[in-house]
């Protein structure tokens, strides 16, 4: 187990290196450049452009720009943003990632707690009210893209019922509720569906019948035998769901005007802000790899039959 973890952690390095190379290549394939030397109405004179290119290291050959980037990145130095010239990329990301992580964590909590709870309740009371709520929410989560749901939530709670004073910004707890629900709804639906079907399988299994036959109390049967074993399949989809919540945030951040990492990514792209683009993709890549590792290790905890070597 320890050897496996160490190996997987070490493997992150070549993975991120490859990811950075792919991003770098595509980024430079994109037409246009930060200084737009070919633009007809460029306010910068050629001499000024030359000075700026030199300052940002854009005058060097492409391969040298890449090796410089990698060398600096190993010390977590991603350079200065071309757009926000006075702040380093690391400073910007520290602030913006915090917002995105807060949003993501609240959304995930809603999705995991709501999804597991609803799925378990639906399985324990098949064709009862909880089951129908579960099916209804699952359909809603599948049918509506998160940004559409976001708009409907704003209309309903802000404009029609006035329950929440406004949207936009990230200062009060009220700013968190609607975007987190919009972002968490689809994952909640997916988790609920998986949990329900896996619980139903387990409830019908022989060892649960045995547990009941030997006279165990129903709560004990449910907690010790059903829930514990029924959690393995939902666990397998957690990593893609965590990743989906993370990468699904740009749409939600744009609709709710939240100053998170997704907004910055889209903006830095239109500005060809190379250091920002590289840093954001690498940060998210590292996050996804780490999540996959955590979920893989969790399998071993939940299902002792799985052994890593």
């Amino acid at each position: 187990m320890l050897r496996y973890t160490v190996f997987r952690l070490a493997w992150m390095v070549p993975c991120l290196l490859a990811l950075s190379l792919i991003t770098f290549v595509f980024m430079h394939l994109t037409p246009g450049s930060p200084l737009q030397p070919d633009a007809a109405n460029n306010p910068l004179t050629p001499a000024e452009q030359h000075v700026l290119a030199k300052q940002f290291g854009l005058d060097k050959p492409i391969w040298q720009q890449y090796t410089t980037f990698v060398w600096n990145a190993t010390r977590l130095n991603f350079g200065k943003s071309y757009v926000f010239k006075t702040r380093s990329v690391t400073q910007i990301l520290k602030k913006q990632t915090k917002v995105s992580i807060e949003l993501g964590l609240v959304a995930l909590t809603i999705a995991v707690v709501g999804g597991l709870g609803l799925g378990i309740m639906a399985a324990m009371n098949q064709n009862g009210p909880a089951d129908y709520i579960c099916t209804f929410l699952a359909m809603l989560g599948i049918a509506l893209p998160n940004f559409v749901l976001g708009v409907f939530l704003i209309l309903l709670f802000v404009l029609v019922f006035h329950l929440i004073p406004r949207t936009g910004g990230w200062t009060s707890p009220a700013d968190v509720i609607l975007p987190a629900i919009a972002l968490g709804m689809t994952p909640l639906a997916t988790i609920a569906r998986y949990t329900r079907s896996s619980m139903v399988d387990v409830i019908r299994s022989d060892y649960v019948r045995t547990a009941r036959a030997k006279g165990l109390a129903e709560p004990r049967v449910m907690l010790v035998h059903v829930v514990k074993n029924g959690l393995i399949p939902p666990l397998t989809i957690m990593a893609p769901i965590f990743a989906a919540v993370l990468t699904g945030s740009p749409a939600i951040e744009s609709i709710f005007r939240i100053p998170g990492i997704g907004q910055y990514f889209v903006n830095s792209f239109t500005a060809r802000d190379y250091p920002m683009i590289m840093a954001i993709i690498l940060l998210l890549g590292a996050f996804i790899i780490a999540l996959n590792l955590i979920v893989d290790l969790l399998y071993g905890v939940v299902d002792p039959r799985i052994r890593y070597s």
């Binding site: 070549p14 993975c15 991120l16 490859a18 990811l19 792919i22 991003t23 595509f26 980024m27 994109t30 990743a243 993370l246 990468t247 699904g248 740009p250 990514f265 889209v266 792209f269 683009i277 954001i280 993709i281 998210l284 890549g285 590292a286 996804i288 790899i289 996959n292």
Partner: peptide
Amino acid sequence: VVYSIPTLFFAIL
């Protein structure tokens, strides 16, 4: 490596 790519962001790229 491809699995570690953040899908939506990569598609934007």
